[in-house]
């Protein structure tokens, strides 16, 4: 059983690794927030909204890549006057990092790639657990199947 706190640990390790990182959000491809970590608890942003937009931008860029046949999308960077937003693929999820404008881009990229590899494994395990049917549901399914078989015999 995977502890959801494992996601938060990976995200907070990432945020502590570089001084310019303000916020880290892990979202799935549909834009739902899985976990997040902030450097300052008072930093006011709509995490779910930011995560959803980051995921949408990432998926849209991914589509561009598919149309151009230039392979898998690794990382999207958006540079603003007072900050930067990075979004990286991590399997079935998207890792979104919000930073200051003068951050070490190379370091953020490196740290994100490392965290993404780690998150991909945990996320795969987490989602496979989520989709596994409980034992009772499995039994019900078997009963239904045998009932259908009997009906077919008639």
């Amino acid at each position: 059983m995977i502890d959801v706190k494992l996601f938060e640990k990976i995200l907070s390790d990432l945020i502590k690794s570089e001084s310019g990182i303000r916020k880290v959000i892990l979202v799935d491809r549909t834009g739902l927030t899985i976990a997040h970590a902030s450097k300052f608890s008072y930093y006011p942003v709509d995490i779910d909204g930011i995560g959803a937009i980051a995921s949408a931008v990432f998926v849209a860029s991914e589509e561009q890549g598919k149309n151009l046949d230039i392979g898998e999308l690794m990382l999207v960077t958006s540079e603003f006057e007072q900050g930067k937003i990075f979004a990286a693929s991590c399997g079935k999820g998207v890792l979104c990092v919000i930073t200051d404008s003068d951050v070490n881009i190379g370091m953020v990229r490196l740290l994100m790639k490392r965290a993404a590899t780690e998150l991909e494994k945990v996320l795969d395990e987490f989602l496979s657990e989520q989709t596994t049917l409980p034992a009772t549901e499995e039994k019900t399914r078997e009963k239904l199947k045998s009932a259908l078989d009997k009906l077919e015999e008639f």
């Binding site: 070490n104 190379g106 370091m107 990229r109 490196l110 740290l111």
Partner: peptide
């Protein structure tokens, strides 16, 4: 990538 990231960090 590794060298560029860590070297810029140490220079800063």
């Amino acid at each position: 990538e590794k060298i560029a990231a860590f070297v810029t960090s140490i220079v800063d």
